[in-house]
Simulated scan of single mutants.
Amino acid sequence: MIRFGVIGTNWITERFLEAAREAEGFELAAVYSRTEEKAKQFAEKHGIPQWFTSIEELAASEHVDAIYIASPNSLHAQQAMLCMNHGKHVLCEKPLASNVHEVRQMLDTAERNGVVLMEALKTTMLPAFEAIRMQLPKLGKVRRYFANYCQYSSRYDEYRRGNVLNAFKPEFSNGALMDLGIYCLYPQVALFGKPSVIKATGVMLESGVDGEGSIVTGYEGMDAVVMYSKITDSSLPSEIQGEDACLVIDKISEPSELFIRYRDGREERVEVQQDKPVMTYEAIEFMELIRQGNQQSATNSWATSLAVAEIMEEARKQLGLVYPADQQQ
């Protein structure tokens, strides 16, 4: 059994716990919240034996082996490094940190303490993503990667009424790129590596974060186009376009239906067996790393997380998107 503590009591934590319970060897041991009332309520709801209002006490607990972090983006680095310095393995929600400097600090801390650190980016952990990778040779020479994740946020309704919630506050290192754009960029880097050219445009909101944006990146012989938004919807699928065929992906954040459309008109459905909750697969991967004594995932690797952070930081510079965390370097 691997005993987990969780930092954060929001909806994503609820979803992770529901999924992680499907993973063999998962044990929920502790929860942290800033307030005693929330911590106690969450512990009682989920049958958690221990609850904390001090992260230091959670990190030092001898009853916890690993910690899942689902706090605001701006707190990821500080909290993860504290836990890793106490010898705890860390599964940290995407984005791993606010900026490249923080990501590098986290990777150094993990290496120094000999613990597992993995970014909880679900897309690349799914069986459908491995199926995407396996289909690439059928496409011929790949010329374009196109990923689209535009999902109107219910919190934007509040924003338009004058109530700025955390999702649109720069002090929490939030916005469309960090929330949705990363789902497009992470698979791109996992499949094709870091691009040599990055060009970004977008719409900045009055609160100081981006509402939507587009990033065009260049590789030798191919390019990649990413579109993301929290202020509009889109029904477009994502694609990987080769000279011989195009692979159509239903939803880049949670791919499940894949089709190959060949130039001669043939269409091939790619069969994928994916019967677990989508976040179960990242929990399984993370726990296997701990059991095997490996510090990082081959897919959600430290190099991939760092490269994605570098792309997003360059895109933010071009957009003029600055977080308070950037000034603390």
Rank of each mutant, 00 (worst) to 15 (best):
G162Y: 08
S154L: 12
F146R: 13
S98D: 10
E130H: 06
R155Y: 15
D157I: 09
N99A: 13
K122R: 09
M125C: 15
M106L: 13
F129P: 07
E111N: 05
E171F: 03
L139V: 04
N163G: 05
V116N: 07
M106F: 10
E102T: 01
L180Y: 09
N166S: 13
E111A: 09
K141M: 14
L91S: 09
A97C: 10
F129N: 11
N99V: 11
Q135W: 06
E119G: 02
G162P: 02
R112I: 05
P127T: 10
M125K: 13
Q151Y: 08
L165Q: 08
F146T: 09
R133V: 05
C92G: 02
R112L: 12
A110K: 07
Y159K: 02
E130G: 02
T109S: 13
V115L: 03
D108K: 15
M178R: 08
D179P: 00
T123S: 02
R155H: 14
H89L: 07
S98F: 11
L177C: 01
E171V: 03
A176I: 03
Y156I: 10
K138W: 04
C150M: 14
Y149S: 11
L96Q: 01
K122S: 08
D108W: 09
Q151R: 12
P95T: 12
A97P: 04
C150S: 13
G162M: 09
A131W: 04
T124M: 15
L91V: 08
R160M: 15
A131S: 07
M118F: 00
L121W: 04
M125D: 13
V100S: 11
T123G: 00
K141V: 14
V164K: 10
N148A: 09
A120K: 11
Y152N: 06
V90R: 00
L180C: 04
N174A: 06
R144N: 09
R155F: 14
Y152E: 06
R143G: 13
G140S: 05
Y149C: 13
Y152T: 04
S154M: 11
A131K: 11
S173C: 08
V164S: 12
T123H: 00
G140K: 05
E171K: 06
A128V: 04
E111K: 08
P137L: 08
Y149K: 15
A131C: 03
E111W: 03
Y152V: 05
A120M: 12
S173T: 05
R155W: 13
P137A: 08
A97Y: 06
N99Y: 10
C150E: 14
L139P: 06
I132D: 11
M125W: 10
E130R: 09
E102Y: 03
I132C: 11
A167E: 15
L121V: 14
P170S: 00
Q105W: 03
Q151H: 10
N163V: 15
V100F: 11
N166D: 14
H101Q: 12
